[in-house]
Nucleic acid binder design. Structure first.
Lengths: 406, 406
DNA sequence: GACCGAGTTGGTAAGCTCAACTAACAAACA
DNA sequence: TGTTTGTTAGTTGAGCTTACCAACTCGGTC
């Protein structure tokens, strides 16, 4: 029989009363502080561990780039031997290449530098969340946009709209100049984890098996997710955010994506982030398309804002309109900030509307309505990724799904 | 060299255009849909996998109880051999025992039943969130309370209050009749992951290293967390909730704990759930101790509610007071429900206040202010765990930390 | 200035350990 | 005889340690 593992793991000295009276022969297998899931649900085999370590090596090369095997070993905590083995595997798959020897003069054998072969694969990303057009692009592994294509919606809904997605995908695939790693799609509405668009009112979609349809047509991995969820991934990967963040996407509708502990939040019915139809404030508001009064969208959606701005005659009036919209956003977000203790909120949408009075008013309102000591360092800013945020987020989803990297 | 892993993992048929033109030699190592963390951060060794599987076996026995090795193997997906090995280890540690043979008549060798040795260890749990008293209990592994102790706070704050915690702990340890698995504490205020109470205004605590102090005095594993976070764990373990949930704790203050995807949310600065000082509504409100007007606590905290009820003369008036409080809670929670797409909200606090008009008004308000199609099946209810919820949550933290089970 | 040994760093090869697996089998039942 | 349980024996896979060679710098020596 094996030696018992009856070893105390507590870091305390053995002077306490318990030490004398009651041995505690249990090792900590899932420290609470680690934030690990509470209930283990599936078995783990050594090969799963290998997959994880493989991604770890890939991740290190992806973010740092141009490193030797020894560098990667130091960075990951794995041994040089193990890293060599994993790298051999990754090179055989064409994902990693040797890029020559390290410059500069130092003792020891010169290092052979490695990097992800950033030209080896390309990604197709699509944004279905625009009002009148489906936009798509071919991107490289770094998320750089190599070529673009778009297709006007021209009022298409239902199956017609699906057909346009397929057409656009085909066009993008033809534009690609390297093997396609996968196809990522950011769709409006509620999307489940298997790539079914459960509901997308603007497109007239209900239970559209988008992922399956694309997979049947194109023999490539497909990832479909909500547009705001895609956007928050883009912001996470290409921005410099670290903590828990929320991305609020303002357009014809208003939606949000949440990234908590580095993991996207989908919600119990995949409808997380659907804040557009939450009523804001206790003093009425305009009637919303959903039938309620004073939904966030009635305050913030771009058509409504544009209409209100049309009616203004002076810059001061326009400023007040924008400030009010910002305040309403702050009112809606305050409880969320309080409940989640967010580090960062990013806005995505037309900068001419969002930047300036609106975002300033939102931040003021948030500060006035939450505890400064918890949320004083909350950052609120506009995305730097502009209109391509969903596209690029869709690419991140593919990279993440296929390589375990982001 | 090893065989290349250039195997297509897409489930699509090989008829798509990509199948012909561009092989996609990448396996999915971290499927997006799995909800796994985006960026792998630490290496994983085989022994980590073993720890996981060990917890998996323990979890199966913990929840199902009275199972044979073969049952566990079927339940977990591990082989009988592996389960046998793990069980041998767990029995050597005294965590698992054989409880005899299975009754009933069926073909084959009779099964030897196993179970967690539910009397092998006891847990000390404490609730520091009550207004005038520290309460504690000794619990068994099932979370059943075996004995209780409490110590009046008598206005103690700061170091005096810490001393009372130590005294109460000592008393509880003496009350225990089996080895102590660990000591769990639910404290008010903001608690970081290493068990430091960063701030707890009511107790006059700032940066109190509670875990460390207890660990030095008692040679046992200590877990300290926010009271509402502990409570939500209790509700998760002993209630029958499944999806993402939020527990709102109403007392002298108002706080919340969130459990998303089975994992507690701590927030970027460990202040998740601190919703008591979020301003509710846009029509003023009473002045709060924090200086703002109309914080959730001014509407909902029990002293305020009691005071308002004192002023009422008729049941109808009292009812209106409670309904207003409920509405305010609904107003505050609506954006959170929208953003997180919660499955369940549980209230903890005095039933005579919360149950009835208040909770009804909260649910009505939530329904009126969010999209029914996303949140129509949102459950809102009172906890069934009563006053012991934090105590029992503290025990769950210990069990989770030490055994990886809950 | 050329040379040579010592020290340093990078990468690989051989063999070990651990953990889960498959295959096979004995025990105990209908 | 067939079924189910649990164990024994041996295999596979993954990362580890140990040991080694390769290729460089540095500093002393001829």
């Amino acid at each position: 029989m094996k030696e018992s593992r009856a070893v105390r793991e507590s870091s305390a000295d053995s002077t306490g009363v318990l030490a004398a009276s009651s041995p505690i022969p249990v090792r900590s297998s899932a420290p609470f502080a680690d934030g690990r899931a509470l209930r283990p649900s599936t078995k783990v085999l050594p090969e799963h561990a290998r997959g994880h370590n493989r991604s770890l090596v890939l991740q290190t090369l992806y973010t740092a780039g141009q490193q030797s095997r020894a560098d990667v070993a130091r960075g990951t905590g794995l041994t040089r031997v193990t890293v060599s083995d994993l790298v051999t595997e990754l090179m055989a798959e064409g994902l990693v290449i040797e890029t020559g020897q390290r410059e500069g003069t130092r003792p020891g054998k010169p290092a052979t530098l490695l990097d992800i072969d950033r030209g080896a694969f390309q990604i197709v990303g699509m944004d279905l969340s625009q009002y009148s057009v489906f936009r798509g692009a071919v991107l490289d592994l770094d998320g750089k946009i190599l070529s673009r294509a778009e297709i006007p919606l021209a009022g298409s809904i239902g199956a017609d709209a699906v057909e346009k997605v397929l057409t656009l995908t085909e066009r993008l695939v033809e534009l690609s100049t390297a093997p396609i790693l996968g196809i990522g799609i950011g769709s409006p509405g509620v999307v489940d984890l298997s790539g079914v668009v459960l509901t997308a009112p603007n497109l007239g979609w209900t239970d559209v098996h988008l992922r399956q349809m694309l997979a049947e047509r194109f023999g490539a991995p497909i990832v479909v997710a909500n547009d705001a969820n895609a956007a928050v991934l883009a912001e996470h990967s290409f921005g410099d955010a670290n903590g828990d963040m929320m991305l609020v996407k303002v357009g014809h509708g208003v939606g949000a994506g949440l990234l908590l502990g580095g993991t996207p939040l989908f919600g119990s019915h995949f409808a997380a982030g659907e804040i557009g139809h939450v009523v804001v404030g206790t003093d009425g508001g305009a009637e919303c398309s959903c039938g309620k009064f004073g939904c966030l969208e009635t305050w913030l959606a771009t058509p409504r804002l544009d209409a209100k701005l049309e009616l203004t005659t002076t810059p001061t009036e326009a400023r007040m309109v924008l400030r009010e919209a910002g305040q309403r956003l702050g009112i809606a977000l305050a409880p969320v900030v309080g409940a989640l203790n967010l580090a960062e909120i990013v806005l995505s949408g037309p900068p001419e509307l969002l930047d300036g009075p609106l975002i300033e008013a939102t931040l003021e309102t948030l500060r006035n309505r939450t505890m400064a000591e918890f949320h004083g360092d909350l950052a609120l800013r506009l995305t730097t990724l502009g209109d391509d945020i969903v596209l690029r987020g869709a690419a991140v989803m593919v990279i993440s799904a296929q390589l375990g990297v982001s």
